[in-house]
Design a protein around this nucleic acid. Structure first.
Length: 265
DNA sequence: CCGAACGTTAGG
DNA sequence: CCTAACGTTCGG
């Protein structure tokens, strides 16, 4: 009577399933961490700087993409099925697009001067390829690039870009910017416009760490499971907590001090 | 506002 | 090519 007490047991079949599912191993695909796109960015940037040895058109050309790059504000359909990978593609990446926009804004404001120095082209980013790793490394890796004379991005802009791509804030985003100014408004408007947000439409990935992500096997009973054929959705109990939140397209976080750019003060 | 359906992307 | 699943749209 008392020794085999089942501790009130799972109060519902759902909990039973949950317990069973939780004991299952993590899926292989989730164990593989999402590659840090910034490392790719750095590598690509090096390659770009070689290819576009004629300096200024490198960035300028990218800032004014071809018609194919400019996704029309049409609702749907006309979009090419798959964006083929190319060098220019990195500017269409979640972070890259913002980078391009940010750079253009700076150019318009006269803050960005495209004056590459021989040092920029000759100096390989050895440190970048060697020190890449976790997201923290990405930040430090990126600093040499920021420091180069033709791309005077400040940390604020960097965080601004990262917010759009989300690769810096994926862990819960403890840092962000609010009230940057007109520039941000422009960026926000373009990147989050429904249907037309190229970078914003890129799929996010499951964090692989939250409880739902760690589950394997579908419940086969929730609406998502039942409508798998038409719904194309993952089981409700496996839906990543991060993905449940709305994609971070804006920059809503504020520093505790309330300052938009603490580092500028 | 919520859920279903659909389009699309991404990995195998 | 196939499957899984995210993002967006639409209807209730």
């Amino acid at each position: 009577m008392s020794d085999t007490l089942d501790m009130s047991g799972p109060s519902s079949p759902e909990q039973q399933r949950a317990n069973r599912i939780l004991s299952e191993p993590l899926r292989r695909s989730l164990k593989r961490s999402h590659p840090c796109s910034l490392s790719e960015y750095l590598n690509n940037t090096n390659r770009l700087s070689h290819r576009h040895s004629s300096s200024s058109i490198g960035v300028r050309g990218l800032l004014h993409p071809t018609a194919a790059q400019h996704r029309p504000t049409q609702p749907r359909q006309t979009k090419p099925r798959r964006a083929h990978s190319s060098n220019i593609d990195l500017w269409d990446s979640p972070s890259g697009l913002h980078l391009a926009h940010a750079a253009e804004l700076l150019m318009r404001a006269g803050a960005l001067t495209l004056t590459p120095t021989p040092r920029d082209q000759g100096e390989e980013m050895e440190g970048g390829s060697g020190a890449e790793g976790d997201s923290t490394g990405c930040v430090t890796d990126f600093l040499p690039l920021l420091g180069c004379s033709w791309f005077p991005l400040n940390p604020g802009l960097f965080a601004l870009m990262a917010g759009g791509g989300g690769f810096l804030t994926s862990g819960g985003g403890s840092m962000g910017i609010a009230g940057i100014g007109e520039g941000v408004e422009v960026l926000r408007g373009e990147s989050s416009s429904p249907g037309g947000g190229g970078a914003g439409r890129r799929k996010r990935k499951r964090c692989g760490e939250c409880v739902p992500c760690r589950r394997t096997g579908n419940c086969e009973e929730c609406s998502a499971c039942r409508n798998r054929k038409t719904g194309h959705q993952i089981c409700k109990y496996r839906k990543c907590e991060q993905l449940k939140k709305k994609a971070a397209t804006g920059f809503e976080m504020v520093f505790p001090s309330g300052a938009a750019f603490p580092w500028l003060q």
